[in-house]
Write a protein that binds this DNA or RNA. Structure first.
Lengths: 195, 195
DNA sequence: GTCTATAAGGTGATAGAC
DNA sequence: GTCTATCACCTTATAGAC
C-alpha cells in the first residue's frame, strides 16, 4: 500500500473520503489526525491537501453528502396520498437506507458539534427538511382521522429517534433479518400514532 | 478565578468533575485538553493530577457515575406488578431523570468509543442492566396479555431510543412543559406495545 | 495542594523539490 | 500529484520547588 512517488488523482480522492469516513466513525473526528487518514490511504499527510482544503471540509463533505443522498433517495420514493401507506413507506425506507450506511449515519449524529457554525447551519437545515417530511405525513393522517397525535413534529422526532436506534444494535450477521426488523418497527410505529 | 498558590482539595475535586462534564459534553472528550479543564477550574494543568490519575479516568468516572445514579434511582421506584403501570412508571421516570442531566446523558451516549476496552465493558454492562429492566416489564406484559411485542429486547431498545431522543430537542424554556412531553411520549409508548 | 518547568511526542497546514 | 521537511503550536503526564 505504501508508495514513494506517483500520480493517482482519480482514485486517491474517493479513497481519502472513504478513509475519513471509516476513521471518523470509529474514533471520532477530533481523535483522528490527518496523518492517520493519509496512512490509511497510503500517502503522506501533505498529499491530502490536494483533495480537501482542510480537515473541517472533509467532515462537512461527508455529512452534507450523507444528508443530500438521504433526501435524494427519499425524493425518488413513489408518492402516496394515503397517510398510513406513506408512514409505512417512510418507516421501511428509513430503516433500509440507514442500515446500509452505518458509518455515515453514526458520523451525522455524533459529529454535529464538530462542525463550524456555518457548516452546522447547512447540515441542520437538511436534517430539518427530512424531519418535516415525516411530520407532514403525520399531519395528513391527523387531518383524515387515521392518526391521533397531538404534536406532529414531536411525534416525528420520536419516530425518527426510534428508527435510527436500529443502527445501535442491528448487525447483518445477527439473529434477525432486516425484513424482520422492519416488521417489528413498523408494527410499533403504526400503533404508536394510530387513532 | 485565577490564583497563584493555595490549598483547596475539598472543593477542587468536585469542580474538576463538573468542568470535565461541561466541556466533554460541549466539545467532546478528544477535543478537550487537560489545560482547558484546568482553566475552567482556575488551576494549572498539573494540579488536576491530584484528583485523577489521567484523562481517561475522568471520562470513566463521569460515565460510570451516571449509570450508577440511573440504576440507583430506578431501584428506588416503587415496585408494581401490573405491567402497564410499570411501563408508564418506566417511561415517566426515564424522561424525568434524563431531562435533569442532559450533559451526563449526552456524554454517556457519545463517548462510549473513547472508553478504554476495560472501562467500556463496565459501562456497557450497566447499560444492559437498565435495558433489561424494561425488557422484563415488556415480557411480563406479553405473559399476561396486556402487550403484543414479538421481540421484547428489540422493543425495549426501540422505546429507550425514542425516550432518550427527547434530550435532543426538549428545552425547559420551550413551548411544551416536561409534563406535556411526558404525556405525549407515554401515549405513544403505550400504544406501540399494547395488544 | 498547587505551582513552574519540562519531557517526549503529536497536531494541522504549508513550501518547494521532483 | 506526491514527496520530504518544516513551522508554530498543542498534547498528556511528570518532577521538584514552595
Amino acid at each position: 500500500m505504501a508508495r514513494t512517488q506517483g500520480s493517482h488523482s482519480d482514485i486517491t480522492g474517493p479513497r481519502v473520503r472513504e478513509a475519513a469516513l471509516t476513521l471518523f466513525a470509529r474514533h471520532g473526528y477530533a481523535a483522528v489526525s490527518m496523518r492517520q487518514i493519509a496512512g490509511e490511504v497510503g500517502v503522506q499527510a501533505g498529499a491530502l491537501y490536494n483533495y480537501t482544503p482542510d480537515k473541517q471540509s472533509l467532515l462537512f463533505d461527508l455529512m452534507k453528502g450523507h444528508m443530500d443522498e438521504l433526501l435524494a433517495a427519499w425524493a425518488t420514493q413513489p408518492k402516496t396520498s394515503n397517510p398510513l401507506a406513506a408512514l409505512e413507506q417512510f418507516t421501511r425506507f428509513h430503516i433500509r437506507f440507514h442500515s446500509k450506511r452505518p458509518e455515515a449515519v453514526f458520523i451525522s449524529y455524533m459529529e454535529l458539534r464538530n462542525l463550524s457554525p456555518g457548516n452546522f447551519t447547512v447540515v441542520e437545515k437538511l436534517r430539518r427538511t427530512y424531519e418535516d417530511a415525516l411530520a407532514d405525513i403525520l399531519r395528513a393522517g391527523v387531518a383524515n382521522g387515521a392518526f391521533n397525535v397531538p404534536e406532529p413534529k414531536v411525534a416525528a422526532m420520536a419516530v425518527i429517534a426510534m428508527l435510527t436506534g436500529v443502527n445501535t444494535w442491528y448487525r447483518e450477521a445477527g439473529r434477525l433479518s432486516l425484513s424482520e426488523v422492519e416488521e417489528i418497527y413498523w408494527a410499533m410505529v403504526r400503533k404508536s400514532v394510530t387513532a
